Simulated assay, not measured.
Amino acid sequence: MPDSFATHLLSITTGRTETVTDLTGDCEQFLARVAHGRDGLLNIFVPHATAGVAILETGAGSDDDLLAALQTLLPADDRWRHRHGSPGHGRDHVLPALVPPHATLPVIGGRLELGTWQSVCLVDTNRDNANRQVRLSFFG
């Protein structure tokens, strides 16, 4: 049983374009406030049916490559049965099957344990909803 549980809700504005938003700094700030040097787990959860959480390199083109791959796999056209919203919006509802709405990461000594080039990212292809929430929860 964990000694500690803390949670925090981030409000993120992604805009009206498909985006990969780096949340690593937000995760680190949250852990600095609540982990107090303890080991544990950080859970990142997006309570939306059209967004996901990915662990990937950012800033060197991988984030753009991910969006391009998602456009290839999930084209924004009229093939989707889910048809409300902007044209092709049904694809956004399939996204969480490929980019899950959650990730759980190790925290060692109060710090997020990521690889050298890894970042925690919100992936949002839904141009109809620019306001997102991300729940950070620490168990330690």
Results as ranks from 00 to 15, higher is better:
His8Ala: 15
Thr50Asn: 06
Leu23Cys: 12
Thr116Ser: 11
Thr125Val: 05
Pro101Leu: 07
Phe139Thr: 09
Ala76Trp: 13
Leu56Met: 09
Trp117Ile: 01
Ala49Glu: 04
Gly110Thr: 07
Gln29Ile: 13
Leu73Thr: 09
Gly25Trp: 01
His84Pro: 00
Asp128Lys: 13
Thr7Leu: 11
Ala32Tyr: 07
Glu28Gly: 08
Val99Arg: 02
Pro96Ala: 11
Asn131Leu: 13
Trp80His: 03
Arg135Gly: 04
Cys27Met: 02
Asp124Ala: 06
Leu9Pro: 07
Ser86Asp: 02
Val107Leu: 03
Thr19Ile: 06
Ala49Tyr: 15
Gly61Thr: 10
Leu136Phe: 03
Ala68Cys: 08
Ile55Leu: 11
Leu10Asp: 07
Gly90Tyr: 10
Thr7Ala: 11
Phe5Arg: 07
Asp64Asn: 14
Leu136Gly: 01
Leu74Arg: 01
Leu122Val: 08
Arg135Ile: 09
Thr17Leu: 00
Cys27His: 02
Pro87Cys: 04
Ser4Phe: 14
Pro75Asn: 10
Gly40Tyr: 00
Gln118Phe: 04
Asp22Gln: 06
Arg135Pro: 09
Ala32Lys: 13
Asp92Tyr: 03
Ala35Gln: 11
Arg16Thr: 14
Asp128Trp: 13
Phe45His: 05
Val120Thr: 03
Ile108Phe: 15
Ala68Asn: 10
Gly61Pro: 06
Gly61Tyr: 15
Asn126Tyr: 02
Val34Ala: 10
Gly25Thr: 13
His93Thr: 14
Leu114Pro: 04
Leu105Lys: 04
Pro96Cys: 11
His102Glu: 13
Thr14Leu: 00
Asp39Ala: 12
Asn43Trp: 09
Gly37Asn: 13
Gly115Val: 08
Trp80Cys: 07
Asp26Ser: 12
Ala6Tyr: 04
Val134His: 01
Ala76Cys: 08
Leu56His: 05
Ala68His: 10
Val20Ser: 00
Asp77Gln: 03
Leu98His: 15
Gly85His: 02
Pro101Ile: 09
Pro101Tyr: 02
His93Phe: 14
Thr19Glu: 00
Leu136Arg: 01
Gln118Lys: 04
Ile12Ser: 01
Met1Gln: 12
Arg91Cys: 12
Ala76Met: 12
Asp65Gln: 03
Gly25Gln: 03
Asp63Leu: 07
Arg132Pro: 00
Gly40His: 02
Cys27Phe: 01
Leu98Arg: 14
Thr17Cys: 00
Asp92Glu: 08
Gln71Asn: 10
Leu67Ser: 08
Gly52Tyr: 10
Thr116Asp: 01
Met1Gly: 12
Trp80Tyr: 05
Leu66Gly: 03
Thr50Arg: 04
Asp22Ala: 07
Ala49Phe: 15
Cys121Ile: 07
Thr116Leu: 11
Leu56Val: 07
Arg83Pro: 00
Gln133Pro: 05
His84Gln: 03
Thr7Cys: 09
Ser11Lys: 12
Thr116Lys: 05
Leu41Met: 07
Pro106Arg: 07
Thr50Ala: 05
Leu112Tyr: 06
Val94Asn: 10
Leu98Ser: 15
Pro96Asp: 05
Leu73Asp: 05
Thr104Gly: 04
Thr58Ile: 09
Asp65Gly: 06
Thr116Trp: 14
Leu98Glu: 15
Gly15Leu: 06
Ser4Gln: 15
Arg91Tyr: 12
Trp80Met: 02
Val20Asp: 00
Arg81Ser: 09
Ile55Phe: 15
Asp39Leu: 08
His89Trp: 14
Cys27Glu: 00
Thr7Gly: 13
